[in-house]
Simulated assay, not measured.
Amino acid sequence: MADDNAQGFVIGDVEVFPVAEWAGPYVPLDTLVPDLPPQAWRADEDRLVPDHLQDGRAVVALQTWVVRGGGRTVLVDTGVGNGRERPGNPLFHQRQGDFLERLERAGVRPEGVDVVVNTHIHGDHIGWNTHEMDGSWVPTFPNARYLIPGADDRHFGPEGGYAGGARPDDRLMYEDSIAPLHRAGQTVLWDGAHRLDGDLVLESAPGHTPGSSVLRLRSRGERAVFVGDLLHSPVQVPHPECGSRFCLDPRQAATTRVRVLERASDERELVIPAHFGGSGAVRVSKRGGEFVFRNA
């Protein structure tokens, strides 16, 4: 079903599984979620090691989630990509990997992808939107519609001065991974909410970026929600006030995180973040007025 040793889920009639570009210990815990007290990591250490925590470093997966059902193949986020100029991030800079081969081993050929969802515009979520051909960046998935939050397109694109020009990487990632899609006429920009079909709905979830979004899946009474970078580690579930160091608006991100976790608990949604190790997902509930998690 999935590539190599990746695990997956079945949500009603829909198959869901990750295809990893890279996974492993990434950064120290206090670097990834700087406002989280050390005792919070220790309190859940038995459930965090080894899938989410190894040798004092947070385990992170760069991966794409494949959603397959109803005769349609949807990709949720597309990783870093090969050959990118990302001087601000050594892990992303000029990477070379076999992601497309992994995707094909999972039974997904580029021409067979119908929809690509970018939950937001960051370099590790849009990279395989395109690939290099004859010296130009072109869409990797030639028959797909690319769904991109309009607020992020405005912020990270030329309209927003490439996120105000604060980081060279923002201009680079937009020009090699988003602009070619616009030129090819394959993008759909949306704001607020966007329904893909009867099973899948995109909803705005701002804070991490202006256009950050979640993708909700419902099939035959079962539910899941792809939350992108709303969570970087399960330890944030009992501490939703603590965001990652990558959030552009930490206060808004915290408010959004609480709202999404409340609904996940109430509606028993499987919570699927972009970067979790292990199975890649958690179940969320409330105990004594606080959120708790268990690995899926």
Rank of each mutant, 00 (worst) to 15 (best):
A40T: 06
E159H: 09
N89I: 10
S265Y: 06
N5W: 11
G69D: 03
V258I: 14
E21C: 07
R245A: 15
T256N: 13
Y26N: 10
D199C: 06
E15Y: 03
N5T: 12
E159D: 09
R105N: 13
A264F: 03
E85K: 05
D229F: 00
D170Y: 03
R109N: 10
N89E: 08
D3T: 10
R216M: 07
Q39R: 15
H52E: 14
S285Y: 01
A193Y: 11
V138N: 06
E85W: 07
H125S: 11
M1Q: 13
P180Y: 03
A2R: 14
R167I: 07
D44I: 08
S219A: 03
L48K: 12
T119C: 12
F9P: 03
F9M: 08
N5R: 13
V14I: 03
L248R: 14
R154V: 15
A281I: 02
G97M: 04
D266P: 04
G127E: 03
R109T: 14
V60G: 02
L217G: 00
I11G: 04
E85S: 07
T64Y: 06
D170C: 03
A6E: 15
P149L: 08
A43R: 07
L230R: 04
P240Q: 01
P90E: 10
G278P: 00
E222S: 04
N295A: 13
D176R: 00
R171C: 04
A205C: 06
A144M: 03
T119Y: 06
L217Q: 01
A40Q: 02
R95N: 02
R47F: 07
L202W: 00
A224I: 00
R294A: 14
A274W: 05
A163P: 06
A179I: 00
P139I: 08
G107A: 13
R109A: 15
N143G: 09
Q252K: 14
Q39Y: 14
Q186V: 15
H232A: 05
G123Q: 00
T209N: 05
A144P: 01
E85R: 07
G83A: 02
R86F: 04
H182F: 10
P210Y: 08
V27K: 06
R86N: 05
A193R: 15
